[in-house]
Design a binder for these strands. Structure first.
Lengths: 142, 142
DNA sequence: TTTTATTTTGTAATAATTACAAATATGGCA
DNA sequence: TGCCATATTTGTAATTATTACAAAATAAAA
């Protein structure tokens, strides 16, 4: 098993299991923002007994530990993203694909989470920017 | 029945019904971002036979017509907002309340939806900014 | 190798959303 | 005003995603 993935698991969970390893390996570098069901379905091919509950629970733990993030841009289900550096998301209303969008444009965002004054005293923990529309592929089909 | 609400219904739907009127009236000026279930539950007090399906279907039509908006900031359910002018949303992770946030701060956003170049060719229809954290009320209880 | 606590599995419960057909009500028209 | 065609509402049930739970299996330490 890849040592870097094993290391990641040890950082957050006590035990290293083949299931957890497979889930993290599948997510690594994955830019499709899969749902829990997507992930489970794909892993079943190589690991025919892995249960949905295990996938679901592992994803929850990874999110809780800050190793991956949940993306709520899809109205129907949670999507998961291994990238945790600052970036935005684009959701295609036609095909449902989710794309990463760079932190810069087509808008500039200057965030200062420490300043709660203009947020009526609320404490800001995270800011997510969701962009919706028609993706490049679906556009070219029109 | 209030003529302005009746007018709004006529603009989008052929028939004006007491149910649709009650739903729109309940939403008007409502800043709590209620869920479909919230709305149904409240309306039952004055209209004991209104069904959840009617509430749900009417909300869908209002969203489709652009008279209200769906807010996906709550991980558990859709929330509805009668405000359709540009503004952001804050979600309290503790109490689940959703607050409107002004379009300006604590970050500045310069949006140019027409520029698709930096979005890899995707066509932008809407941009939503979701802020999560601890709301003022919950903060003061700590 | 044995032991203990964690993890996985499989199933089932919960909750939100959506589909559908029968009953009802709206709005146009005579 | 009263009738009729069509849209809407209702109530129930199906679908889908998420979560809970306990028994069986496994990882890691002794």
């Amino acid at each position: 098993m890849a040592p870097n993935i094993t290391k990641k698991i040890k950082e957050i969970a006590l035990r290293v299991t083949p299931q957890r390893h497979a889930i993290l390996k599948f997510l690594e570098g994955n830019v499709t923002h899969p749902s829990a069901e997507n992930i489970h379905h794909k892993l079943l091919k190589k690991m025919p007994n892995i249960s949905f509950t295990t996938v679901y629970n592992t994803l929850s733990k990874l999110v809780e530990a800050g190793k991956i993030q949940e993306v709520y841009i899809d109205p129907n289900k949670k999507r998961f993203d291994p990238r945790i550096d600052p970036h935005h998301h684009f959701y295609c209303k036609v095909c449902g694909k989710v794309f990463d969008v760079g932190y810069d444009a087509p808008f500039s965002v200057i965030i200062n989470p420490l300043n709660t004054k203009k947020l009526d005293g609320h404490q800001v923990d995270e800011i997510q920017i969701y962009i919706k529309g028609l993706c490049k592929d679906c556009r070219s089909k029109r």
